[in-house]
Protein backbone atom coordinates (compact mmCIF):
# COMPACT_ATOMS: atom_id res chain seq x y z
CA UNK A 1 0.00 0.00 0.00
CA UNK A 2 2.70 2.42 1.09
CA UNK A 3 4.71 1.42 -1.91
CA UNK A 4 1.91 2.05 -4.38
CA UNK A 5 1.19 5.44 -2.77
CA UNK A 6 4.84 6.20 -3.25
CA UNK A 7 4.66 5.23 -6.89
CA UNK A 8 1.61 7.42 -7.49
CA UNK A 9 3.28 10.35 -5.80
CA UNK A 10 6.38 9.89 -7.92
CA UNK A 11 4.22 9.62 -11.02
CA UNK A 12 2.29 12.73 -10.03
CA UNK A 13 5.45 14.73 -9.37
CA UNK A 14 7.09 13.78 -12.64
CA UNK A 15 3.98 14.57 -14.64
CA UNK A 16 3.64 17.99 -12.97
CA UNK A 17 7.28 18.66 -13.78
CA UNK A 18 6.81 17.52 -17.35
CA UNK A 19 3.77 19.76 -17.65
CA UNK A 20 5.51 22.84 -16.24
CA UNK A 21 8.54 22.18 -18.43
CA UNK A 22 6.54 21.84 -21.60
CA UNK A 23 4.44 24.92 -20.86
CA UNK A 24 7.61 26.96 -20.47
CA UNK A 25 9.10 25.40 -23.56
CA UNK A 26 6.05 26.25 -25.65
CA UNK A 27 5.56 29.75 -24.22
CA UNK A 28 9.17 30.63 -25.03
CA UNK A 29 9.70 28.39 -28.04
CA UNK A 30 6.78 29.39 -30.26
CA UNK A 31 7.28 33.16 -29.86
CA UNK A 32 10.98 32.67 -30.57
CA UNK A 33 10.15 31.00 -33.88
CA UNK A 34 7.73 33.79 -34.74
CA UNK A 35 10.33 36.33 -33.70
CA UNK A 36 12.96 34.85 -35.99
CA UNK A 37 10.79 34.49 -39.09
CA UNK A 38 8.85 37.71 -38.56
CA UNK A 39 10.72 39.87 -41.14
CA UNK A 40 10.03 37.22 -43.79
CA UNK A 41 6.30 37.41 -43.04
CA UNK A 42 6.13 41.19 -42.87
CA UNK A 43 7.95 42.03 -46.09
CA UNK A 44 5.73 44.56 -47.84
CA UNK A 45 4.89 44.90 -51.48
CA UNK A 46 5.30 48.36 -52.91
CA UNK A 47 3.88 49.65 -56.09
CA UNK A 48 4.48 53.03 -57.70
CA UNK A 49 4.46 54.97 -60.95
CA UNK A 50 7.89 56.51 -61.50
CA UNK A 51 8.14 59.64 -63.66
CA UNK A 52 10.83 59.10 -66.26
CA UNK A 53 10.84 62.49 -67.97
CA UNK A 54 9.36 63.75 -71.25
CA UNK A 55 8.69 61.01 -73.76
CA UNK A 56 10.04 63.22 -76.56
CA UNK A 57 13.52 63.12 -75.10
CA UNK A 58 13.82 59.39 -75.76
CA UNK A 59 15.21 58.77 -79.27
CA UNK A 60 13.25 56.65 -81.69
CA UNK A 61 14.32 53.03 -82.03
CA UNK A 62 17.34 53.28 -79.72
CA UNK A 63 17.10 51.77 -76.24
CA UNK A 64 18.02 54.53 -73.82
CA UNK A 65 19.08 53.94 -70.28
CA UNK A 66 17.18 55.53 -67.40
CA UNK A 67 17.98 55.08 -63.71
CA UNK A 68 16.08 55.89 -60.57
CA UNK A 69 16.08 54.88 -56.95
CA UNK A 70 13.40 53.64 -54.59
CA UNK A 71 13.54 53.73 -50.83
CA UNK A 72 12.23 50.93 -48.70
CA UNK A 73 12.21 50.51 -44.96
CA UNK A 74 13.80 47.29 -43.78
CA UNK A 75 13.56 47.05 -40.02
CA UNK A 76 15.31 50.11 -38.60
CA UNK A 77 16.89 51.15 -41.84
CA UNK A 78 15.93 52.87 -45.05
CA UNK A 79 17.36 50.92 -47.93
CA UNK A 80 17.85 52.69 -51.24
CA UNK A 81 17.51 50.39 -54.24
CA UNK A 82 18.81 51.55 -57.59
CA UNK A 83 16.94 50.60 -60.72
CA UNK A 84 18.18 50.90 -64.22
CA UNK A 85 15.94 50.36 -67.21
CA UNK A 86 16.13 50.68 -70.99
CA UNK A 87 13.38 52.69 -72.64
CA UNK A 88 12.65 51.86 -76.26
CA UNK A 89 10.32 54.16 -78.19
CA UNK A 90 9.15 53.32 -81.68
CA UNK A 91 7.78 55.52 -84.43
CA UNK A 92 4.17 55.10 -83.33
CA UNK A 93 5.12 56.27 -79.83
CA UNK A 94 4.73 52.75 -78.45
CA UNK A 95 7.08 52.37 -75.50
CA UNK A 96 8.75 49.29 -74.12
CA UNK A 97 10.63 49.46 -70.84
CA UNK A 98 13.13 46.67 -70.16
CA UNK A 99 14.76 45.85 -66.89
CA UNK A 100 18.55 45.81 -67.25
CA UNK A 101 18.78 42.79 -64.95
CA UNK A 102 19.79 39.65 -66.79
CA UNK A 103 17.23 36.90 -66.30
CA UNK A 104 20.03 34.38 -65.86
CA UNK A 105 21.79 35.32 -62.63
CA UNK A 106 21.03 38.98 -62.10
CA UNK A 107 24.02 40.73 -63.66
CA UNK A 108 23.42 44.04 -65.45
CA UNK A 109 23.08 43.93 -69.22
CA UNK A 110 24.11 46.83 -71.41
CA UNK A 111 23.01 47.79 -74.88
CA UNK A 112 25.61 47.66 -77.59
CA UNK A 113 24.81 49.83 -80.58
CA UNK A 114 27.12 47.99 -82.97
CA UNK A 115 25.29 44.67 -82.71
CA UNK A 116 21.93 46.11 -81.62
CA UNK A 117 21.95 43.68 -78.72
CA UNK A 118 21.86 43.76 -74.94
CA UNK A 119 24.91 41.85 -73.72
CA UNK A 120 25.40 40.45 -70.26
CA UNK A 121 29.07 40.54 -69.23
CA UNK A 122 28.81 37.62 -66.80
CA UNK A 123 28.06 34.65 -69.07
CA UNK A 124 28.03 36.34 -72.45
CA UNK A 125 24.26 36.26 -72.88
CA UNK A 126 22.83 38.19 -75.83
CA UNK A 127 19.31 39.62 -76.01
CA UNK A 128 17.86 41.27 -79.10
CA UNK A 129 16.53 44.82 -79.13
CA UNK A 130 13.10 43.60 -78.04
CA UNK A 131 14.48 41.66 -75.11
CA UNK A 132 14.29 38.16 -76.59
CA UNK A 133 17.11 35.70 -75.93
CA UNK A 134 19.51 35.38 -78.86
CA UNK A 135 22.20 33.23 -77.33
CA UNK A 136 23.60 32.22 -73.97
CA UNK A 137 22.13 30.71 -70.82
CA UNK A 138 19.17 33.01 -69.89
CA UNK A 139 15.92 31.06 -69.42
CA UNK A 140 13.59 33.83 -70.61
CA UNK A 141 13.52 37.26 -72.24
CA UNK A 142 14.37 40.46 -70.34
CA UNK A 143 11.65 41.53 -67.89
CA UNK A 144 9.45 44.41 -68.96
CA UNK A 145 7.88 47.16 -66.90
CA UNK A 146 4.40 48.42 -67.55
CA UNK A 147 4.44 52.03 -68.73
CA UNK A 148 2.07 54.82 -69.68
CA UNK A 149 2.28 58.32 -71.02
CA UNK A 150 0.72 61.02 -68.93
CA UNK A 151 0.72 64.58 -70.32
CA UNK A 152 3.74 63.78 -72.44
CA UNK A 153 5.58 62.36 -69.47
CA UNK A 154 6.64 58.75 -69.45
CA UNK A 155 5.61 56.86 -66.30
CA UNK A 156 7.03 53.48 -65.32
CA UNK A 157 5.13 51.10 -63.08
CA UNK A 158 7.44 49.52 -60.51
CA UNK A 159 6.34 46.70 -58.26
CA UNK A 160 8.73 45.61 -55.54
CA UNK A 161 7.84 42.38 -53.86
Amino acid sequence: MARSANVTRRGFITSVMAFAGSVMGVVVGLPVIGYLISPALNAKKSDAWIPAGKLDTYPLGVPTSFSFTRTQVNGWEKTVNSFSVYVLRDASNQVKVFSSICTHLGCRVSFHKSSEEYICPCHDAHFNINGGVVSGPPPRPLNQYESKVDNGNLMIHVIEA
Partner: peptide, 16 residues
Protein backbone atom coordinates in the same frame (compact mmCIF):
# COMPACT_ATOMS: atom_id res chain seq x y z
CA UNK B 1 15.13 13.73 -8.20
CA UNK B 2 12.21 13.96 -8.06
CA UNK B 3 11.45 15.32 -4.57
CA UNK B 4 13.93 18.19 -4.31
CA UNK B 5 13.87 19.08 -7.97
CA UNK B 6 10.07 19.17 -7.80
CA UNK B 7 10.14 22.13 -5.41
CA UNK B 8 12.76 23.82 -7.58
CA UNK B 9 10.58 23.29 -10.62
CA UNK B 10 7.49 24.73 -8.96
CA UNK B 11 9.43 27.87 -7.99
CA UNK B 12 10.86 28.17 -11.50
CA UNK B 13 7.40 27.84 -12.96
CA UNK B 14 6.03 30.52 -10.63
CA UNK B 15 8.91 32.83 -11.57
CA UNK B 16 8.30 32.14 -15.23
Amino acid sequence: FPESLYRDMLVMFAIF
